[in-house]
């Protein structure tokens, strides 16, 4: 594997290798402090995403490497009309590995075919964002000890949320998982997720617009319901509070529930929930750094 463009580029075995590597990094960070000495990561961000960029940069710095790059298209050669392929080929002369974010779907694949160094997709439009999914998977593994026989709730915008689609896709590669899909009628998962993943894989799932199944969940993955997703203001106002997680609702949940959110959050998780030991979304951020460290090592072929 030269690049990581989509989460499905990884076999279940390769994914497990990454998870194991991340766990070892967490266990013995000193062992990895100089693994990427004299190696350079280029962060090519054609649209801003400070959160993702910082995570990649922190990961490389913690491996003893260095970083270069740009954080928005205005300050890059793209503003002068250079193609993605040419930018990638040029950067490949300076750097050892590229993390690319681009508003257009497929741009990192174009970069990967042009550059002879590894390219990591750091988000291409609403399409793929494999390192977010890796982050989610490491969090699930650390909290639950595995990927099988879990009852996973997804709540909020399940129609447009690519992190949701990608995580459902990843969890459908393991046995015995059940899915509870909590959303307004208008924002249910797209048909292909139901048909190609859940139905074809024979997974149990429920689509609902209420919280009745919260007490059964092992994992609750929250996402934001955005105003612009609704056709009219009345629907938005009617629904916006229904899909907010409160401390009150959590009283009925399992004691070892793992609450996740890809962040940034607006108001879909009440602040009072932050102090609940079941809230894992800030741990998720830290896991994002560890899994990116593991990924950089793997793509650079460093043990």
């Amino acid at each position: 594997m030269k690049d990581l463009i989509s989460i499905t580029d990884l076999t279940v075995e390769e994914l497990q290798e990454l998870i194991d590597k991340a766990l070892d990094i967490i266990e013995c960070p000193d062992k990895y402090a100089e693994k990427c000495k004299r190696k350079k990561l280029a962060t090519l961000f054609f649209e801003p995403s400070t959160r993702t960029r910082l995570s990649f940069e922190a990961a490389m710095l913690e491996l003893g490497g260095s970083v270069l790059g740009f954080s928005e298209a205005n300050s890059s050669s793209a503003a002068k009309g250079e193609s993605v392929a040419d930018t990638a080929r040029t950067v490949a002369c300076y750097a050892d590995i590229i993390a690319m974010r681009h508003p257009k779907e497929g741009a990192p694949l174009v970069a990967a075919s042009a550059a002879d160094i590894p390219v990591i997709n750091a988000g291409d439009g609403g399409h793929n964002h494999p390192t977010q999914t890796l982050t989610d998977l490491l969090t699930i593994y650390r909290e639950k000890g595995g990927f099988s026989n879990l009852k996973i709730g997804f709540c909020g915008d399940l129609k447009f949320g690519r992190t949701v689609h990608s995580l459902i896709n990843a969890m459908c590669r393991y046995e015995g998982n059940e899915f509870v899909l909590i959303s307004p009628e208008e924002l249910r998962v797209p048909g292909y997720i139901r048909k190609d993943l859940l139905d074809r894989g024979g997974f149990k799932y429920v689509e609902t617009d209420n919280w009745d199944l919260l007490p059964e969940l092992d994992i609750l993955y929250m996402t934001r319901v955005q105003r612009e997703r609704f056709f009219n203001e009345a629907d938005y106002l009617r629904l916006k509070d229904v899909f907010i997680l409160t401390a009150e609702k959590l009283r009925s949940a399992k004691e070892d529930l793992c609450i996740m959110h890809p962040l940034p959050r607006v108001n879909e998780i009440e602040r009072a929930v932050d102090d609940d030991p079941r809230a894992c979304y800030f741990k998720q951020v830290l896991n994002g750094k560890y899994i990116r460290m593991a990924l950089i090592l793997k793509l650079l072929g460093i043990e």
């Binding site: 193609s83 993605v84 497929g106 741009a107 694949l109």
Partner: peptide
Amino acid sequence: RCITSTEQELPHVFQLADREKGVYRCVYC
């Protein structure tokens, strides 16, 4: 939203995703 919409020189490449149904998908998006 596909990269081929802004980069005119890229070849439009499609891959067979489902032989039974004859479904092809863009390799980029």
